[in-house]
Design a protein around this nucleic acid. Structure first.
Lengths: 210, 210
DNA sequence: GAGGCTAATGACAGCCACTGACAATTGACA
DNA sequence: TGTCAATTGTCAGTGGCTGTCATTAGCCTC
């Protein structure tokens, strides 16, 4: 990589980290693009040459994570039931996300930013839209695994929607609590996924609440 | 209602209809607030005195519909299982939405706008966020019906997430097709909800696809 | 290693959503 | 009818984002 490329890379990384740091400390709405550019000492115009918008910086890590989940699901053995495959794919991807990102964005910084995403309406909305797109991809993979036509059979999308719903419920709970670690998230996710069966079983009022 | 109030009401309605009409014909991003204000012959500033933002006009009907769903769920007999109650509440609310809105916004206009919502990234994201908030409300009602603490027991939120997921899958499919009527939506919804059981049943590969 | 080429940057102007402030208008009501 | 308050228009400004064009800076060749 020549000097020019290295310089670009450094500018991009600096902008990214400056943006995330500002979001985490000051808040998303309270951070202007000018602030970010100023922190790296480049013009605002340069920022927009590296990122399509302010939002894009906030979703840098989630974007990588989504890619990992898709990859992980694709290599799951096809004998696994859909929900099982999804569960393992997600848990697996969290094991690898750390090393995949740490050098560009410290994972702790991302966890702080994640809280901002969940608590900033504009970002939360964008997050949900991204999740919807990811779910569409996952549904297609599941359909393929099962040898189904995703546009003719609703079951793949339904299962993925259920799975995604549980994940989102977990994310909300996790980001609202104070156990902000990957381990905590992992823990919560498994216990919540274990509740899917009970939640869909007949009568709640006879059993015991967890 | 005195003259002043009537005038305000007329301005509000005119802005709303002008906005929706423009969105439906020209597209959301291609419509500026100035366009909307000009169509009603008021200043841009006046538009913002009636609506918090451009987005708000697009979600006028969905907003009413959400209220109807909440109401409908609240009066469902508590013996009904959660999914059954949700299903009936939604179908019921669609029966009433027509008369509740028709005089302000023709339902056909809304259906055209709904397509725009689904196909415009910014609006779709906002739609998902609104849905998330609605689901939170529904989960609380379900929890209450079942005598559970929504923050201690994940099951209400999980069931509602599943239900919401199915609804969203149907909405997408419906808005992508060309059967743009309430009846069509209703039809799709019931058939999809009927697929929840099969989707969660053991092995897909043994049974027949619908 | 000087000079030409191209990619990256900065500076500037402009659009659009949205907001605050203030003055002008217009309905309400005594 | 005149006073008061609510509604509106105008203007100026902020922030996200884009197009344009001149300038700068790394790259590559002779």
């Amino acid at each position: 990589m020549n000097l020019r490329e290295r310089k670009k890379q450094r500018t991009r990384d600096a902008l990214l980290r400056a943006a995330l740091e500002l979001f985490a400390t000051r808040g998303y709405d309270e951070t202007t693009v000018d602030d970010i550019a100023a922190a790296v000492d480049v013009s605002q115009r340069t920022f927009f040459r590296y990122f399509a918008g302010k939002e894009e910086t906030a979703f840098f890590v989630p974007r990588l994570a989504e890619g990992l989940v898709v990859q992980a699901l694709q290599v799951r053995p096809p004998e696994e039931a859909p929900l099982e495959a999804l569960r393992r794919a997600v848990l697996e991807s969290w094991d690898t996300i750390n090393e995949a990102v740490e050098e560009i964005v410290p994972i702790d910084l991302h966890l702080r930013v994640y809280r901002v995403i969940e608590s900033t309406p504009a970002l939360f909305a964008a997050h949900l839209r991204r999740s919807a797109e990811l779910e569409e991809q996952l549904a297609r993979i599941i359909a393929e695994r099962e040898g189904l036509d995703v546009d003719a059979d609703p079951r793949p999308r339904i299962v993925v929607a259920l799975f995604g719903g549980v994940i989102r419920v977990t994310e909300r709970l996790w980001s609202a609590g104070d156990e902000l670690s990957l381990a905590g998230m992992r823990q919560l996710t498994t216990t919540y996924l274990d509740q899917v069966g009970p939640a869909l079983a007949g009568n709640w009022r006879t059993g015991q609440s967890p």
